[in-house]
Design a protein around this nucleic acid. Structure first.
Length: 575
RNA sequence: GGGCGUGUGGCCUAGCCUGGAUAAGGCACCGGCCUUCUAAGUCGGUAAUCGCGGGUUCGAAUCCCGCCACGUCCGCCA
C-alpha cells in the first residue's frame, strides 16, 4: 500500500495490538477518527470496560502506558475513555505530497486487483426518452462504475436491452401503423422524443381497440419465439429511441460499454436451459400448464407468492430471461452489481432465489433507488406531467448560463459562457442526485437543484477554478517545493484532507455509497476556501513559503480534479 | 392484508450497517467581510422532544418490539 495515511493507520493498529497483548486484553481493534483537535485516530475503550469491569478511562490510561511510539505516532493521550493518537504531521505531510506528485491523476486510485466487475444500470425500456423518475439510475450506475475503476477493478458497464417485451411491441406497432400526423407534437429534435408519440398513441389505441391489442400480442408472441423477422422489425422501431437515450446519457458524461439484448438469451437457447433446470427443482409447480416456483418457503410474503417463469403457451417471461442473463454475466465476472428502481425489488429477489436454486454462486449486489418525484405528487404519463431527463438537463444548463452571465458578462465571450454553463449545469445535476443516498425519496424542486451555492457541484468546481487561477499566474516546480513551510492551521487541515482521499475512495467502493465522495469533496473545497482566505500565495513575499503554497494549491487542484472525475463531472479552469 | 424502504431545526441532507467524546452540514433568515490570487467565496447568529410509544444497555438518532405517516411491490406485465 502506497498511501501514507494507510501506513500510519496500520501502525496505530499494530501498536494497540501489541499493548493489548502485553496486558493480556483481548478485543477487536476498531479505530475511529476523533472529532476536532482530539487527534488523528482514536481507540475507544468502552468495550474493554464492560469485559474488565473497570472504568473506560482507567483502561485507556493503562493501555496508553504500554503504547510503543514509532515514527508515525507522535503523541498518545488518554481522554474520556478514548486513546487519542496524534500522528507525526511532518512525516504525513512530506510522504503524502511525495506519493501525490508521483501519481498525479492516479493519486487516490488503487493498484489493479485483477477482478472483473459488471455494473448493470439504466436498462430502460427503449420506448421513449428517459424520464426524471428514473434519472438516478444512469447517474448512480456511472458513478459506481467510476469508483470501482478507481479502486482497481476491471469494470464493464452494461445496459440490458429489453427488445422483446410488450413495451417495444407497442412501439413497433405504432411506428408501423401510424402516420406522423396522428401523433402528438414533440419538444425536442431528438430521435427518442420524435418516436415516443407513436408509443403513446399505440398504447391508447391498444386499450380502445381489441384488434390493435391482438396485433400487438402477436408481435410479443413472435418475438418471444425468437422470430428473426419480427425481432428485426422491432429493432428498427426502437433503435432511434435507444440512440436518443444514448445521446442524453452522453451529454451527462455517461457512456455504457455494452448493450445486451434480451433476445440473445432466447436466440441462444440459454433461457431454455434455465427452464429445464428450474423444472427439476423440488419447488417447481404446474398451474394449467404454466410453471411457477412458490416463493413462500423462501420468505417471500404477500397476496401471491407464485413466481411464474413459463407461460402455459410455452413462452418465457421477463424474469426468466433475466435469470439467463445473470448466469451469462456470472460466467464472465467476479462481482455483479445492478442498479435498479425500488419497483424491481421483488423481481430481483425472484432472480436471486432462482439463481440459488440453479446453484449459481455469483449473486448480484443490487443498489435500489427510490424514484424522483415532483412536488405535486407522483409523476404519471396519463396526467401528462412527464418530466424528462432532457428537461432536467436543459433547465440546469439554462440556469447555469444565467449564473455565468451574471458574473462574467463582458469578461468572457458568448461561446465561453455557454461552454461553462454546460459544464456547470450538468455537474449540478449529477451532484444533486449523487449527494443523496439512493434509498431516500427525492422530491425534485428546481430551486434546490438549481441553487449553485453550498453543498453543490459549482461550489467544488469554483474551488477548482480558484486553484487554476492561482496556478495560471505562477509556476509549480516540484524541486523548489518544501512542505515544511506549510504550518498554518488552514494549511494543516487542507493537507490532512488531501491525505484522506484514498481512504474515501476505498470506503465509497466497499460500502457501495457514492455519496461519500460528494461529502468529501465539499469538505476539501471548504478547507481550500479557508486556506484561500488565510494564506496568500502570489503576494507572499517569503519565497520558500510561496513555493510551498504553490505546491499545496497544485496538490489540491489534483485531488479536486480526480474527485470530480469520479463523479463524472468536469473540473473547469475558470467559471 | 402482507413484504421491503424512508421519517433528523422552517426546508433539505450526513451520522444508523459496526451503539459512545458537545447530534454534523447545506438552503432560507438576521448581522459582518471585496483598493488584496473570480464574493458561485468567507466569518458570526437564530433554529432539533433525531415520527410516536415501549424495551435492551453503564450509555440509543444508531440495536429489538409495537404503532403512525409517506414511497414501492405483491400480473401466465416489463
Amino acid at each position: 500500500m502506497k498511501y501514507p495515511l494507510y501506513i500510519a493507520k496500520r501502525s496505530v493498529e499494530s501498536t494497540i495490538n501489541n499493548a493489548l497483548l502485553k496486558l493480556k486484553y483481548n478485543c477487536e481493534i476498531k479505530i475511529e477518527i476523533p472529532p476536532n483537535e482530539l487527534g488523528d485516530f482514536a481507540f475507544p475503550c468502552f468495550t474493554l470496560s464492560s469485559i474488565l469491569k473497570k472504568s473506560p478511562n482507567d483502561i485507556a490510561l493503562e493501555i496508553t502506558k504500554q503504547i510503543q511510539k514509532d515514527k508515525w505516532i507522535k503523541k498518545v493521550e488518554a481522554k474520556g475513555g478514548y486513546i487519542n493518537f496524534y500522528l507525526d504531521f511532518e512525516l504525513l505531510k512530506k510522504s503524502t505530497f511525495e506519493v501525490l506528485f508521483d501519481n498525479k491523476v492516479e493519486y487516490g486510485t488503487f493498484e489493479k486487483k485483477n477482478k472483473k466487475v459488471i455494473v448493470e444500470h439504466t436498462s430502460a425500456n427503449p420506448n421513449g426518452p428517459l424520464h426524471v423518475g428514473r434519472a438516478r439510475n444512469p447517474i448512480i450506475g456511472d458513478t459506481i462504475t467510476r469508483i470501482f475503476k478507481a479502486a482497481g477493478y476491471n469494470v464493464e458497464s452494461q445496459f440490458y436491452l429489453d427488445d422483446m417485451g410488450k413495451q417495444v411491441a407497442i412501439l413497433a406497432w405504432g411506428v408501423n401503423n401510424l402516420k406522423e400526423k396522428d401523433i402528438p407534437k414533440y419538444d425536442y429534435e431528438k430521435q427518442d422524443h420524435k418516436t415516443v408519440g407513436y408509443y403513446q398513441m399505440a398504447s391508447t389505441l391498444m386499450k380502445e381497440k381489441s384488434e390493435v391489442s391482438e396485433e400487438i400480442s402477436k408481435i410479443v408472441k413472435l418475438s418471444e419465439e425468437g422470430d428473426k423477422k419480427i425481432l428485426d422489425m422491432v429493432h428498427k422501431a426502437y433503435n432511434p429511441v435507444l440512440e436518443g437515450i444514448k445521446e442524453s446519457m452522453k451529454r451527462i458524461n455517461i457512456e455504457i460499454d455494452s448493450y445486451i439484448p434480451e433476445s440473445n438469451f432466447v436466440k441462444n437457447k440459454s433461457v431454455d436451459e434455465v427452464i429445464e433446470k428450474l423444472k427439476k427443482s423440488d419447488y417447481c409447480k404446474d398451474e394449467n400448464g404454466a410453471l411457477f416456483i412458490d416463493l413462500e418457503p423462501f420468505g417471500i410474503k404477500g397476496r401471491n407468492t407464485k413466481f411464474f417463469f413459463l407461460r402455459s403457451d410455452g413462452t418465457t417471461l421477463y424474469a426468466t430471461r433475466d435469470i439467463a442473463y445473470h448466469i451469462w454475466k456470472a460466467n464472465q465476472a467476479d462481482i455483479l452489481i445492478n442498479v435498479l428502481g425500488e419497483d424491481h425489488k421483488l423481481e430481483s429477489k425472484q432472480v436471486e432465489i432462482a439463481l440459488n436454486l440453479l446453484n449459481e454462486k455469483k449473486i448480484p449486489k443490487v443498489i435500489f433507488y427510490s424514484f424522483v418525484s415532483l412536488p405535486g405528487g407522483k409523476m404519471s404519463t396519463r396526467q401528462g406531467r412527464v418530466v424528462y431527463l432532457d428537461d432536467l438537463i436543459k433547465e440546469c444548463i439554462s440556469q447555469a448560463y444565467t449564473e455565468v452571465k451574471k458574473r462574467r458578462k463582458g469578461e468572457l465571450s458568448e461561446k465561453e459562457m455557454k461552454n461553462i454553463a454546460e459544464i456547470v449545469g450538468i455537474a449540478a445535476l449529477r451532484f444533486n442526485i449523487i449527494k443523496v443516498q439512493p434509498e431516500k425519496d427525492i422530491v425534485f424542486k428546481w430551486e434546490e437543484a438549481l441553487n449553485f451555492e453550498g453543498l453543490s457541484a459549482p461550489f467544488i468546481q469554483y474551488a477548482h477554478a480558484r486553484t487554476c487561477g492561482i496556478l495560471s499566474k505562477t509556476n509549480f516546480e516540484n524541486k523548489t517545493f518544501n512542505s515544511s513551510y506549510l504550518t498554518h492551521d488552514s494549511e494543516v487541515k487542507l493537507i490532512k484532507t488531501i491525505a484522506k482521499f484514498p481512504l474515501i475512495i476505498d470506503e465509497a467502493c466497499e460500502s457501495f455509497r457514492p455519496h461519500i465522495i460528494t461529502s468529501y469533496l465539499f469538505e476539501l473545497a471548504s478547507f481550500f476556501n479557508q486556506f484561500y482566505r488565510d494564506c496568500p500565495v502570489i503576494s507572499e513575499e517569503n519565497k520558500d513559503i510561496r513555493n510551498a503554497r504553490i505546491g499545496l494549491v497544485e496538490a489540491t487542484r489534483t485531488v479536486l480534479c480526480n474527485g470530480l472525475n469520479l463523479l463524472g463531472i468536469t473540473a473547469p479552469k475558470e467559471m
